[in-house]
Design a protein around this nucleic acid. Sequence first.
DNA 1: ACCTGAACACCGTTCAAGT
DNA 2: ACCTGAACACCGTTCAAGT
Lengths: 187, 187
Amino acid sequence: MTSQHREPVTRDRIIDAALHIVDGQGLGRLTMRRLGDALEVEAMAIYHHLPRGKEELLDGLVAHVAVDPLSATAGGEWQDRLRGWAAGYRERLLEHSGVLPLLVTRRNPAALDGTTASVQEVLGRAGLREETAATGAHTLMGYLIGHAALEARGRALSEAGGPGGAIDWDLRFTGGLDVVLAGLAQS
Amino acid sequence: MTSQHREPVTRDRIIDAALHIVDGQGLGRLTMRRLGDALEVEAMAIYHHLPRGKEELLDGLVAHVAVDPLSATAGGEWQDRLRGWAAGYRERLLEHSGVLPLLVTRRNPAALDGTTASVQEVLGRAGLREETAATGAHTLMGYLIGHAALEARGRALSEAGGPGGAIDWDLRFTGGLDVVLAGLAQS
DNA sequence: ACCTGAACACCGTTCAAGT
DNA sequence: ACCTGAACACCGTTCAAGT
């Protein structure tokens, strides 16, 4: 805290600063040079903490938005547990909607596949047979990511003065989620 | 066809060449200079046909993969019509999986929103009330895009020697689609 | 109308050098 | 160990100029 020394540059501070840039200015404006500026350091210093460079930086952003359903608040029916997890995940994705395109890329497989496996385990514990649980996990993850993408686009467009300002996205999301859960309970 | 003149550069040829680069080398390697090379022209010539530059180019790619459910082969139950449309859309998305991240961005709203509206119309004609049809359209579009993203990632990873080579993606996709359709029919 | 050449303000990354 | 300066091979885009 002595004012003559700046905060040490750490992996966590780098990811945080990068997320801040993406949230405020968009993914396209996240450059190593700008990130260095935000950390009050030359861009080249970042490579000392992230040897794989920008690739590793983007992997870190993806990992940061992931939410695991097993660690989400437990209790209640499996439908309600998944509803709680989905609500949290959706919130996170919209808060950092700039990273959404990164989820769609091959990037950081562990983050997405780990979450999918956890969803499958929740469904398995609920009594669904393995193949149904696997399909259900993919369906839920697909819906979650896809709907978040549509919602992020829709919200940004209506903010920019486009049509569709009348859409109640909360209702749309929970409504669609209920459709998927109803279909799942029945299979 | 006189061999001394090369093919004239048109908007369509530019989009085609760009799609070819994205499919073969990935979105990250689509540059104006490389695109110019493919067309046997200087990169700057492209701006004459696409005044908005790379932005307009990427918009064109998104529009190219869109499939409208109203123009898809008609006939039969609405579920079967949507199944046919979804199968076609999925195929297109996987064929050009490099453009998937572009769908997630704000880019070319007309392409995605138009498709969503068409899905809603199909559901509306099928007798669902308006709010249910709207939710259903978003749910289906969300599932389609999200699942395609997961599938593209999954296929690429297992090709690269990762785990999960045992997943039957066709079965996963139709299974998940049936879950959504079953939930919809019941709402 | 259609294309080129040169230029501008950027990128990510490497590498030797400093402390 | 941690950071910097200079350099390299790229980007997208503008603009005047050619035909």
